[in-house]
Amino acid sequence: MAFAAVETGRRRRRQRQHAPTLREVAERAGVSTASASRALARPALVSADVHSKVLDAASALAYVPNASARALSSSRAELAGMVLPSDANPLTLRALRAFERDLGAADVGVLVAISSKARSAADCAHWLESRGAAAIALFGAMDTVGPVEVKHPCWAIVDLGFDRAVELAARYLHDLGHRRLCLVDEPAMGRSVQLLFALSDLVEVRIDSYDFRSVHPKEFGRQVVERWMALGADAPSALVCSSDLVGASVLRACLDHAIGVPRDVSLVAVGESGVATLTQPALTSIRIAAEDAGAAAARTILALLGDRTAVEARPGVKLVLRESCAAPR
């Protein structure tokens, strides 16, 4: 009897040692371990195909989930990551609010990393992955992520609509008769060469970069206007500013130098934080539906978490006519 009891105990230990693991289920199903876990614990987050493959693999291996591990994982929100530029503007912040709200409603927690000159967006994304983020949204970080990593299966670049907003501004100014424009921008924005190609058939565009974070708002407006004045006869007849705060600063500097807006130069601001309506004259602007961008980013992250194909969505842009633009003289 004692011998039989010992043999039975050994068999049980061998059975426990050879019990199939979640990793083996995932390998048999051809999915990641995280996807296999979601398919078993939260099937609504994965596609029907992934769910079916995981169930078939679990059945074939006679896999039985560990009850204590399952209880622990079910009490903990899944994690996503977001990378922000250090100079996030009001437009980005509005997108972030919608992004975090929609992920929170789906019980997905959010880890945040902020990129800088010393820490690229790609470095931030890798760090977030090491902390458990299963999918990552990069806000305004396209130019600091390599072309190969842009195609990373668990990273999503969030389109805030800036390029399309600038193009809409350029087309409006072209219709007014302007043929030479200047985009007043920040170095960290790093607007794409594709944008210049898109506008080259309409107008001549130059991009002037300023480090708006290092000086008082009134000072960077003065820098913009003094550089514009130094161009003399070659000065562009219209300025497209990267935010309404930048536009308001440029407008103030124009008034200080007795430059008429829109008599001598037209101004358009990209994005609205409420400042555009407070200036005199009020700034014509391009309104970007930033909340839509944040909500679309959240849907993309949820699709990546569920191994589903994300559908690209772009926020709407709309021209808001006010008083700062006119036909060139």
Results as ranks from 00 to 15, higher is better:
Ser214Cys: 11
Pro153Cys: 09
Ser273Phe: 05
Arg70Phe: 01
Asp185Ser: 15
Pro281His: 02
Pro328Trp: 07
Ser242Tyr: 04
Pro187His: 09
Arg180Tyr: 09
Ala62Thr: 07
Ile114Ala: 07
Gly9Ser: 11
Ser285Val: 10
Val6Lys: 09
Glu272Pro: 00
His152Cys: 01
Cys325Tyr: 04
Tyr63Glu: 07
Leu183Tyr: 15
Ala106Asn: 11
Ile114Val: 15
Cys124Gly: 03
Arg213His: 13
Trp228Arg: 05
Gly247His: 08
Ala67Asp: 15
Leu91His: 12
Glu78Pro: 00
Ser242Val: 14
Arg131Gln: 15
Leu173Cys: 07
Leu173Asp: 08
Phe197Asp: 15
Ala67Thr: 15
Gln280Asn: 09
Gly221His: 02
Gly274Tyr: 07
Thr144Met: 05
Ala289Pro: 01
Val110Arg: 06
Val108Leu: 10
Ile286Thr: 06
Tyr210Ser: 11
Lys53Gly: 03
Leu199Cys: 05
Val265Thr: 07
Asp307Glu: 13
Ile286Val: 15
Asp143Ala: 14
Val225Gly: 06
Ala230Trp: 00
Val215Tyr: 04
Asp123Ser: 13
Asp201His: 12
Val320Gly: 04
Asp292Asn: 08
Ala125Met: 10
Pro328Met: 11
Arg299Gln: 14
Ser209Ala: 13
Glu100Leu: 06
Val83Gly: 06
Val268Glu: 07
Ala121Trp: 07
Lys318Ile: 10
Asp123Arg: 11
Lys218Thr: 14
Asp256Phe: 01
His174Pro: 00
His174Lys: 11
Ala80Tyr: 06
Tyr210Trp: 11
Asp163Tyr: 01
Arg10Cys: 00
Leu196Thr: 12
Ala188Val: 13
Ala36Ile: 09
Ser285Lys: 03
Val205Gln: 03
Leu255Lys: 05
Glu167Lys: 10
Pro236Ile: 09
Arg119Leu: 13
Ala310Ile: 09
Leu278Phe: 06
Gly232Ala: 10
Glu24Ile: 02
Ala326Glu: 09
Thr309Glu: 14
Ala118Tyr: 03
Arg14His: 12
Ala282Lys: 12
His257Leu: 05
Gln280Leu: 09
Val224Thr: 12
Asp264Cys: 02
Pro20Asn: 05
Val320Pro: 03
Ile301His: 01
Glu204Phe: 01
Gly247Ile: 07
Val108Asp: 10
Arg12Tyr: 01
Pro43Gln: 11
Gly316His: 10
Cys325Met: 04
His174Ser: 14
Ala48Cys: 06
Glu78Asn: 05
Met229Gln: 13
Val311Glu: 14
Gln17Trp: 00
Asp208Trp: 15
Arg42Phe: 13
Val268Thr: 08
Val265Tyr: 00
His174Leu: 08
Val193Pro: 03
Ala156Ser: 13
Thr277Pro: 00
Arg14Lys: 10
Ser200Arg: 13
Val320Ala: 11
Ala57Cys: 07
Ile136Glu: 00
Leu176Phe: 06
Val268His: 03
Leu251His: 03
Val64Phe: 02
Pro262Cys: 09
Gln17Gly: 10
Ala253Pro: 00
Asp175Phe: 01
Gly247Asn: 04
Gly81Thr: 10
